[in-house]
């Protein structure tokens, strides 16, 4: 069992997202994250899907996606050079002044922006790889009393000459 990624080109129509996600629940595939947005052609959407599965199940997932009429193309991103990033908002709540200082330092180290601030809270806006985001969440959880996290799921695009995942 390991994480694998798929880029999926689909018709940008009502119900297609439900049909794709329904396949995962109906066949008991383990969906980790799914992001979707339109492409340069507004009739086509591109999904970035992360699943946890063994080799045989993953082959089956790709085949099942491929046989959907609404699916235009399935690309296996698992072993492809990529640029892959995830967006996250992390709100640190109930901060003391010292806590705030520490949040600013963490923001510097992780190279993320402070997007908003209040009397006792700070909002970080992050665009990092999935691994860095996991690390950042672990760090914030360990240091502060209360945090609120909103993750966007990974988006990925194939590399031109460099890669980052």
């Amino acid at each position: 069992m390991k994480n694998r990624w798929i880029a999926l080109y689909v018709e940008n129509q009502v119900g297609v997202l439900a049909k794709v996600s329904g396949l995962f629940s109906g066949k008991s595939y383990n969906l980790q994250s799914l992001t979707v947005g339109t492409t340069e052609d507004e009739t086509i959407s591109r999904m970035t899907i992360c699943v946890t599965s063994d080799d045989i199940t993953f082959e089956q997932i790709k085949k099942q996606l491929n046989r959907m009429v609404e699916v235009i193309k399935v690309i296996d991103l698992t072993n492809v050079p990529l640029h892959m990033k995830e967006i996250m908002f992390a709100k640190v709540l109930r901060c003391s002044t010292a806590d705030k200082e520490e949040v600013f330092q963490i923001a510097k180290v992780f190279d993320v922006q402070v997007a908003d601030i209040g009397k006792d809270s700070v909002l970080l806006e992050c665009k990092l790889t999935e691994r860095r985001i996991n690390e950042l969440i672990a760090l914030l959880k360990g240091r502060f009393k209360m945090i609120e996290v909103v993750r966007g799921g990974a988006v990925a695009v194939e590399s031109i000459s460099t890669s980052c995942r």
Partner: peptide, 11 residues
């Protein structure tokens, strides 16, 4: 005729 039928139950 269906790729998804192949190597699903039996390898």
């Amino acid at each position: 005729i269906d790729t998804a039928s192949i190597s699903r139950n039996v390898v």
